[in-house]
Design a protein around this nucleic acid. Sequence first.
DNA 1: TACAACCATAGAGTATAGTCTATACTTGTA
DNA 2: TACAAGTATAGACTATACTCTATGGTTGTA
Lengths: 125, 125
Amino acid sequence: MYFCGMLINELAKRTGITAHTIRFYEKSGLIQGKRDEKITSNNYFHYDEATVEKLELIKDAKSIGFTINEIGNLMDAWYSNKMTIAEKLSVLKDKMQAIDEKISQLIAMKQMIGEFMETVENENC
Amino acid sequence: MYFCGMLINELAKRTGITAHTIRFYEKSGLIQGKRDEKITSNNYFHYDEATVEKLELIKDAKSIGFTINEIGNLMDAWYSNKMTIAEKLSVLKDKMQAIDEKISQLIAMKQMIGEFMETVENENC
DNA sequence: TACAACCATAGAGTATAGTCTATACTTGTA
DNA sequence: TACAAGTATAGACTATACTCTATGGTTGTA
């Protein structure tokens, strides 16, 4: 038995993301499995530990509202060699700013809701 | 000329939301225009200042990632009389918690990106 | 070697949140 | 009064992000 990384189902179990969704992410360019040229009987994709990490990053980024496209850019800055250091830093700085903006908006909304809760409480009197 | 509030196009101008999208929100139950029973020649909807405020709230809530459905619940707690004070407070508290969670996740992501920026910068050496 | 479990690909289907088109009636203005 | 501009409704269309089904081949185990 020859093993090079893991197949899609194990990756799914490891990350809690379904094989279907993993294939969707692969088609979207977020991750890339590798085919083993020494195996000719099938064309199964093999995934490494780095892919597990990438999928965790994708989960985190999605949960805070980044789109697949935005995550793709972030991943390029993170993992690929297609960008210069300056370009990478620029992408990362942009994301930082986007996050700061979101935090500000969330805090503003918290304030609004907090004020409204007081109003609602005083309806009692 | 008889005026009761504003028609959809003025509401659109006031809020920066297109008439199409406003109708979509109306169909989704987020806002409600009123028809003037004294006018029989048409069935135009009339909107008041409160609707302007609601649409601003919708914009804010959307920008921080709330869905139409979630915004609907929030608006019920905010404006409707269908809920008791305790129910309203419960909805608002839930939203507060959801926002706190999002803020935590955003801060965690900022940290990750920050650490990664340092790594990228050190690739220079 | 049967056969359940696994893999790949293509493409259909779903949910959310709009966005646009067509149709038809109403209003305001030159 | 013509006619451009505004309004309502229904329904088609788009984009995003999955999710599922169908089909056909491969692997592992009893």
